[in-house]
């Protein structure tokens, strides 16, 4: 099982790199889609969180990535005369910064302890629902308002004239 996990993790990192390093936005988006699938598998198989996995699939893959693909389709980059060139100094600077951050995070990892049991109960939606509608009722409602206003804002911005 652990071998499979490491393969999974390697694929996730690889697809993440794909998001960043692939030249065409469409490829980046598809790479992200692949990363999301792997994440959902991780949730389901190793973290025993089927509800989160399902939401991950529906929201991220079904909505967000598809949405981005639509926008990529609408935004015709080839005709915009936009050829993305990554400048080498910036690349290295970013690499250095990201590396420093990674090292720091790895050091901070020393603070994190704990094991995740491979064999454990699945956490289904009902238990989460209990928590969401009791302890997190207010944030839940606030998030609903936030999304609603985001939708209104998106419509307002996307329309040429209101």
């Amino acid at each position: 099982m652990e071998i499979i996990f490491y393969v999974l993790a390697a694929l996730m990192i690889l697809s993440a790199c794909g998001v960043v390093f692939l030249k065409k936005p469409v490829h980046s988006a598809l790479s992200l889609l692949f990363n999301m699938v792997l994440t959902a598998i991780l949730y389901l198989a190793y973290l025993k969180a089927p509800f989160v996995a399902v939401v991950q699939v529906i929201v991220y893959m079904g909505a967000v990535v598809v949405f981005v693909l639509f926008v990529i389709m609408l935004v015709d980059l080839a005709n915009g005369g936009f050829v993305e060139v990554i400048r080498v100094p910036r690349f290295f600077a970013a690499f250095v910064v990201a590396f420093v951050l990674l090292i720091q995070f790895l050091f901070l990892a020393g603070f994190i302890r704990g094991d995740i049991p491979i064999v454990s109960d699945y956490i289904h939606g009902d238990k989460l629902a209990e928590l969401i509608f009791t302890k997190y009722a207010l944030p839940f409602e606030v998030v609903s308002i936030l999304i609603f206003s985001a939708v209104v804002g998106a419509v307002a911005m996307a329309k040429k004239k209101l």
Binding site: M12, I13, C17, V19, P25, A29, R90, D115
Partner: peptide, 29 residues
């Protein structure tokens, strides 16, 4: 048994890759 540190490492590597992407890419999408 899955060590917490391993998941943590995976997560933060992905995070740093994402941040790296923000820093170097010029395409808003």
């Amino acid at each position: 048994m899955l060590r917490m540190e391993v998941i943590y490492g995976l997560s933060l590597i992905m995070f740093v890759i994402g941040f790296f992407g923000i820093l170097v890419r010029r395409n808003a999408i």
